[in-house]
């Protein structure tokens, strides 16, 4: 069964998105795999449900968290999009919004939270801190982007991003979910190698000699 070239969601027109290219590339890749019509139809139904009720985890470390609260509050109100409520337990959450700076001491906690979430799970890096360290990139204690610890699906730039920007990012994720083959999701998403990864110090194997 052919996957439709244009992934449509209820809340925003396809043409209004800025970067349809990356999504179309993803569609090409998926098409190459091919799915039979029966599985494909069930898949569509499941994804329709999944993409319209993605529940985020209540998680915020700093300033971006305040804008995240605004997204949940009266004006922006993400419940309109079916994102409904934030979940307090990672076991019940589908997506984690990494709002705010992640520092060295917090990184293991974030990793563990991510590991505790049930599959399929998604990550949104909100704000320049979560993307690359942001204004604190020069600091000795700040992680240079959560991409080092967990795989990220959507990046929302800004310092802090406006609530509208977060909604936009959420809709991008919605499109991604709609496309995925539910029956072939990886067990555990892995961190894609990043450019410049070789130069990074090997953080996993080097332990402190104490």
């Amino acid at each position: 069964m052919e996957i439709k070239r244009k992934t449509r969601i209820r809340n925003m027109r396809y043409e209004d998105f800025n970067d349809n290219e990356s999504l179309e590339k993803y569609v090409e890749e998926l098409r190459a795999g091919g799915v039979n019509i029966f599985v494909g139809s069930i898949n569509d139904i499941i994804n329709w449900g999944r993409s319209n009720s993605v529940w985020p985890l209540t998680f915020a470390t700093s300033c971006c968290g305040i804008e995240f609260m605004c997204v949940g509050a009266a004006r922006a109100d993400f419940a309109r999009f079916g994102w409904e409520v934030t979940r307090n337990s990672p076991r019940q959450a589908d997506v984690i919004f990494v709002c705010g700076t992640i520092v060295q001491k917090m990184a293991p906690v974030l990793k563990r939270l991510y590991d505790q979430m049930a599959e399929p799970k998604y990550v949104m890096a909100v704000g320049s801190c979560a993307i690359c360290g942001g204004p604190f990139r020069d600091s000795y204690h700040v992680v240079q982007g959560v991409g080092e610890i967990i795989p990220v699906d959507v990046y929302v730039p800004g310092c802090p991003p406006r609530p509208d920007a977060m909604l936009y990012g959420m809709m991008q994720l919605e499109r991604k979910i709609k496309l995925q083959n539910f029956f072939k999701l990886p067990d555990q998403p892995s961190i894609p190698p990043q450019s410049g990864a070789e130069e990074r110090p090997d953080t996993e194997n080097k332990q402190i000699q104490s």
Binding site: T61, S62, V103, M106, F136, D138, H141, V142
Partner: peptide
Amino acid sequence: LGYIHRGIEKMCES
């Protein structure tokens, strides 16, 4: 404490 210690005071020095 320290889960959001961003080292701001050190950064200020540069």
